[in-house]
Amino acid sequence: MAHNNYNGYAGDSMEVESTGPKVTVREVEPGRCDFVLQSCSLAFANSIRRVMLAEIPTIAIDLVDFEINTTVLPDEFLAHRLGLIPLNSVNVAKDLQYTRDCTNCDDHCDQCSVTLRLHVKCTSPENLHVFAKDLMIVDGRNDDIGRPVLKDAARNGPLIAKLRKGQELKLSCIAKKGIAKEHAKWAPSAAIGFEYDPNNKLKHTDYWYEVDAKDEWPVDQKNAEWESEETAADASFDPDVQPSAFFFDLESVGIIEPDDIVHQGVSVLQTKLAEVISGLGSSDHGLNGGVSPDPYEPAPADGYAYGARGGTTPYGATAYGSNGFGY
């Protein structure tokens, strides 16, 4: 490969020497991690943010089979609620297969799914509350993947439904691996605070104000103090100044620890890069490869046409409507 002695950081004074990016963890509490990323570009910091939000694989209930539902809530409604229940996703990335990629089974199996059952009936005159803790894992794998996460003091987990006397709910769920880009129920992070230039020194935004923008707009004090003293507010706009510190406040749903979200996020990003490298081929291929179909021509009928079976998305096939479950 032809190279000059460019090392990936040359020609950009913003980059700190050859040591590259810098990370400072400011605050950690269960389910939360506040850190500052420095000496990298806005583009790169944003990629990490995006990947932590939407592309880390987790597990969530994807198919629900109702046997009995005499509650006041319709099946679809309950199925949606079940999908959103946080299930333990530690090690999902490496220990669980995507059902669509699983070579071990035709439909789903222990290596690509977790089955949970729920059977409750209200027999007392008082209303019965059904919680996530009532979901029972069937033929468990020998790890914790798919176990409902119970973070509240009473260890109940989210409330699924309330049953009156005589009402019964019996169902089985298949939880599958997925990413939040396909459906938000697979999101590992509840929220990611992301900010740079808290004092708006770079003038990337123009605050509307009545009298004084400073008095009228909130500032994250912790972030504002991290940055050096404010420069004159009326300094002119310099398009060449680059932001230097990115403030992340990562809040986990509870299914993966926040530090794991960072590491997995980075590794998902690396996987994407590696895939493109491998698509680029290994050697000096030049331009004389095979002829590929015109990417703008319609796809072949049996090819990748999204939605061909009513239940595919660009990010993966879901089995909606393709088997007996369908919710």
């Binding site: 490969m1 190279h3 460019y6 990936g8 590259g20 990016p21 810098k22 990370v23 963890v25 850190f35 990323l37 990298c40 790169f44 990490i48 530090d259 960072v262 590491h263 980075v266 590794s267 990003l269 690396q270 890069l273 590696a274 493109v276 490298i277 680029l280």
Partner: peptide
Amino acid sequence: KGLEDMIEACDVVSEKF
């Protein structure tokens, strides 16, 4: 080169974190 550099930058961020 761009892809490789970015993979490297990812490694550094992960390590530094």
